[in-house]
């Protein structure tokens, strides 16, 4: 028996919008730790890892570890039927081939339940080792989204370089080139407006902008984004989900032939 009650149901709606275009089908894993997901895109270039900790739910009952295979597009269709202020409860019985999403309006005058068919998904779980990153950049998520969108109108790939001068995003295409440099800036009114660069050593890596733009669909989840870079490791683009956990996107770099 599984019953997870999330008062801020809009978080789950936003999570689905953030990942449904990257991943088609995924197993949601439920354990005492929380509600989590790890999945790769169909070309195995990007990986998404989601954690919503059990403490973040108003009610969290998970009698035994459960893995539920869901089509994310179908799940998104169902969650779009929940109001932004609704409380969402996820329910499943042991051995059932369905999951139920229950939506309650804030004043309890409307209660809806949507039952969705589960699916068997054969996916392998990857071990993500702890790594020391050469550079970690924290910046406003809206700024990062803007840069990725702007650069993708010029080129297909972005070179992200961190030096002591700052973080540089560069692209080139048929019509020309573009460079955006963000310097460390901590003299801002609100902490989420800061750009903070922690660099152990300079690093420069190339990534496909198509994936970066897909990751920025998580922007509504967090005011800041943290980008971790190391030579010969996938980049990590992390959006913290307030008091609940995170959504992390990993993207393998492109290398010169």
């Amino acid at each position: 028996m599984l019953e997870l009650r999330l008062v801020q149901g809009s978080l789950l709606k936003k999570v689905l919008e953030a990942i449904k275009d990257l991943v088609n089908d995924a197993n949601f894993d439920c354990s005492a730790t929380g509600f989590s997901l790890q999945a790769m895109d169909s070309s195995h270039v990007a990986l998404v890892a989601l954690l919503l900790r059990s403490e973040g739910f108003e009610h969290y009952r998970c009698d035994r570890n459960l893995s539920m295979g869901m089509n994310l597009n179908n799940m998104s269709k169902m969650l779009k039927c929940a109001g932004n202020d609704d409380i969402i409860t996820i329910k499943a019985d042991d051995g059932s081939d369905t999951v139920t999403f229950m939506f309650e309006s804030p004043n309890q005058d409307k209660i809806a339940d949507f039952e969705m068919k589960l699916m068997d998904i054969d996916s392998e779980h990857l071990g993500i080792p702890e790594a020391e990153y050469q550079a970690i950049v924290r910046m406003p998520s809206s700024e990062f989204a803007r840069i990725c969108k702007d650069l993708s109108s010029i080129g297909d790939t972005v070179v992200i370089s961190v030096t002591k001068e700052g973080v540089k995003f560069s692209t080139r295409g048929d019509i020309g080139t573009a460079n955006v440099v963000c310097r460390q800036n901590t003299t801002v009114d609100k902490p989420e407006e800061a750009t903070v660069i922690e660099m152990q050593e300079p690093v420069s890596l190339t990534f496909a902008l198509r994936y970066m733009n897909s990751f920025t669909k998580a922007t509504p989840l967090s005011g800041t984004v943290t980008i971790s870079l190391s030579s010969d490791l996938p980049i990590v683009v992390e959006y913290k989900i307030a008091e609940m956990g995170y959504i992390r996107f990993y993207l393998a770099p492109k290398i010169e032939d």
Partner: peptide, 14 residues
């Protein structure tokens, strides 16, 4: 020409 690497060449099952 740059070549796209895959996640599975960095992270292993487990």
């Amino acid at each position: 020409v740059s070549q796209q690497r895959q996640i599975t060449s960095f992270f292993s099952p487990g």
